[in-house]
């Protein structure tokens, strides 16, 4: 069983995201612990990329802030190493393929295993292209987490069958960022996933209010919150951890 399964225990899971190195490494680290205190059960850390094509304006800006601080892939690995000295909470990376490709697949995933990264989400690597990574991620015990979108339809079963870690279900069309309403038939998509896999299903993209969180928890095993947390980092910088802790607590209150 992968460490990620621990995130999906008796309660519904809360997957919180920050961009690594935003607005600097010290505040970022404090924000991770704030999420944990608030009730997060899994931490997603973004390795910043110059051109994140699946992100909305909030996370795009966070990527640029992190890069402007001189954030590198190795500095993110160092961050995970520091986190691991204090917590065993499941940690997954979210990044685009190019920084991973540039680091070298073997070296990157060996390092993930060494510092204790449990999984990776790569938004620009769909199911068909995962073949070039799958052997390497498996050999290093890192779960390659697949996304399923409202447009996936007949692809859901195939993707879910080969997925590992958990299923990242994209709530709606478009890039990341808060949405007032999610109109996708989420329970239907979750059922399609569950028919093909025993893995837990977490839903993200647009989730930001306690009401949405509650609604989604009725149909899925967990919620993923990114842009709303990153926005708190942007607005409050060194004061962000307190805001994030309260916010995550509010969203996990009835989990």
């Amino acid at each position: 069983m992968s460490n990620i399964a621990k995130a999906f225990g008796n309660k519904k899971a809360f997957l919180g995201f920050v961009t690594g190195g935003d607005p600097n490494m010290e505040i970022c680290e404090a924000c991770v612990f704030a999420m944990i205190r608030g009730g997060a059960t899994l931490i997603e850390i973004g390795i910043p990329f110059s051109d994140p094509i699946a992100e909305g304006p909030v996370i795009q800006a966070a990527n640029l802030r992190a890069l402007a601080q001189g954030t590198t892939t190795d500095k993110i690995f160092d961050l995970v190493k520091r986190l691991r000295a204090k917590t065993q909470i499941p940690i997954v990376f979210l990044t685009y393929l190019n920084p991973v490709f540039h680091y070298g697949y073997d070296a990157f995933f060996a390092k993930c295993a060494a510092v204790g990264v449990d999984g990776i989400i790569i938004p620009d690597m769909p199911f068909e292209e995962q073949g070039e990574l799958r052997g390497i991620t498996q050999a290093n015990g890192v779960d390659l987490i697949s996304l399923i979108a409202p447009t996936s339809e007949q692809r859901i079963a195939e993707i879910a069958r080969q997925a590992s870690g958990f299923i990242y279900l994209v709530s709606s069309m478009g890039v990341t960022g808060t949405r007032h309403a999610i109109t996708t038939d989420l329970s239907k998509m979750v059922r399609a996933c569950k028919a093909a896999t025993d893995l837990p299903v977490a839903i993200g993209f647009g989730v930001h209010t306690p009401q949405q969180a509650q609604e989604i928890r009725k149909v899925a095993d967990g919620i993923i919150v990114g842009s709303a947390i990153v926005k708190l980092v942007e607005n409050h910088r060194e004061n962000a951890p307190a805001f994030i802790e309260n916010y995550v607590r509010e969203l996990t209150a009835d989990a």
Partner: peptide, 12 residues
């Protein structure tokens, strides 16, 4: 080459 794009676009 290849098709390194978000899942949302794959069916399209």
């Amino acid at each position: 080459g290849g098709q390194y794009i978000p899942e949302t676009l794959m069916n399209e």
